[in-house]
């Protein structure tokens, strides 16, 4: 695979909290245009992997490149959806305003969002079916609605790569389907998506690429090649049987 076709390339990445390795010598290559799940047990370092790719956590070793360049030169190509629980939903702001935050990156320091950004924010809200709630204070939204607002915030960034940390956590079935449809649409448009995912049952249905992670990288590749009992057992440490080809 040539360097140009790789959306994300992680080399020898090691991250430690208080001298305890959370990620150990991770090598990972994600080709452009895949919809990839990162799976692994609790404490496997799934969120940490995303956060260290995005420079939110400093690794103790290794490097990351986005389309061949360091992340800090490629910020505008990348959108990030953190875990819903990572923010205070009582913050005094509205759904539209949270989505508008997605435009801040392209504006840079000091410059303020104008009409163009506000219009883009409303369009993104429309895409996730949240336009009627644009002026709603964010604590007045249901869990699924909050997750849609987060997704709209990533959409407004109009990025090439989307990182999402458990976008299906605590959402209702309707929202889950709405979100996965949007993710599939993004992939069709040539975007690359990296999603931390918990529900192993839905992996083959939702994704076309998967990475198994448990402190070390166990396997990565197309679902058909690597989503098997052997890798599941290696990752989760117990005999795991998931019917892959149902």
């Amino acid at each position: 695979m040539t360097e140009e076709k790789l959306a994300i390339s992680v080399d020898d990445l090691t991250v430690a909290y208080d001298y305890k390795p959370v990620l150990w010598d991770i090598d990972l290559e994600v080709p452009e245009g895949v919809l990839m799940a990162i799976v692994g047990p609790n404490g496997a370092g799934k969120s940490t992997l995303i956060k260290s790719i995005l420079g939110i956590i400093k690794p103790i070793a290794g490097s990351v490149s986005i389309f061949g360049k360091p992340y800090k030169n490629q910020r505008k190509l990348v959108a990030y959806v953190p875990q819903k629980g990572s923010v205070d939903w009582d913050f005094p702001t509205t759904a539209a305003d949270v989505v508008l935050m997605g435009t801040y990156g392209s504006l840079g320091w000091i410059r303020r969002p104008g009409q163009k950004e506000k219009k883009a924010a409303l369009e993104a809200l429309e895409k996730v079916g949240m336009l009627p709630f644009k002026n709603r204070q964010i604590s007045q939204l249901s869990g699924g609605q909050q997750q849609r607002v987060f997704l709209a915030r990533a959409l407004v960034q109009d990025a090439s790569i989307y990182f999402m940390d458990e976008p299906f956590q605590g959402v209702d079935a309707t929202t889950e389907i709405a979100i996965i449809n949007i993710l599939k649409e993004l992939r069709k448009a040539g975007k690359t998506l990296v999603v931390v995912h918990h529900d192993l049952q839905t992996v083959p249905e939702y994704f076309d690429w998967v990475t198994f992670l448990n402190v070390k990288k166990i396997a990565t590749g197309p679902i058909k090649e690597v989503f098997n009992d052997d890798n599941l057992t290696k990752t989760y440490g117990i005999n795991y049987k998931v019917a892959v080809n149902k």
Binding site: I56, P82, M101, Y104, I110, R112
Partner: peptide, 22 residues
């Protein structure tokens, strides 16, 4: 006034703020 947007995003969502470069 100058850094209102930066203060807002880093207060609400420090992770996003870091990822966006603030």
């Amino acid at each position: 006034v100058l850094f209102f947007k930066e203060l807002k995003v880093s207060t609400f969502d420090a992770g996003l703020s870091a990822a966006l470069g603030f």
